[in-house]
Amino acid sequence: MQYLKSGEFFGVINETTRMQGIILTDTEYTHERVDWHYHENPYFTFILQGNVIEGNKKEIYNCSAGTLLFHNWDDAHYNNKPPGFTRGFHIELDKDWFMPFGIDIDNLQGNINISDPAVKLLMYAVFKENKLNGNDCSLAIEALLVEMFTKIQGNAKLLKRDKPLWVERIKEMLHEIPENLRLTDIANDLNLHPVHLSRDFSKHFNCTLGDYKRKIRLEKALVLLSRLDYSLTDIAMECHFADQSHFIRSFRSQYRITPLQYRKLLLNK
Rank of each mutant, 00 (worst) to 15 (best):
E59W: 08
I105N: 06
I186F: 04
N41F: 13
E219R: 11
Y43D: 01
G50E: 04
S202Y: 07
D211H: 09
V12T: 14
T184F: 07
G88Y: 01
G21A: 09
I53Q: 12
F9N: 04
G88V: 03
R252S: 15
S253P: 00
P82A: 01
L183R: 10
E219M: 13
Q20G: 06
F44S: 12
P178K: 11
L265W: 10
S138Y: 00
A125L: 07
I22P: 10
L183Q: 05
E59S: 13
W97G: 08
E176G: 03
E142W: 02
L93R: 11
F101E: 01
K160M: 14
V52F: 00
V167I: 13
N107E: 15
L183H: 04
K81P: 02
L260S: 13
A125K: 15
T17E: 11
I216L: 15
L190D: 05
K128M: 15
I114Q: 05
M1W: 02
P82D: 07
H31D: 14
L122T: 10
F247R: 00
S226A: 15
C239W: 07
I103V: 11
E129I: 02
F201K: 09
R18H: 09
N268Q: 13
Y61T: 07
I248E: 11
R227K: 15
D189K: 11
L181T: 14
E168K: 11
I53M: 09
D229N: 14
N188W: 00
Y38C: 02
V146H: 06
L4H: 07
N41K: 06
P259V: 12
T233Y: 10
A236R: 08
I105G: 05
G210I: 12
N72W: 03
P42R: 08
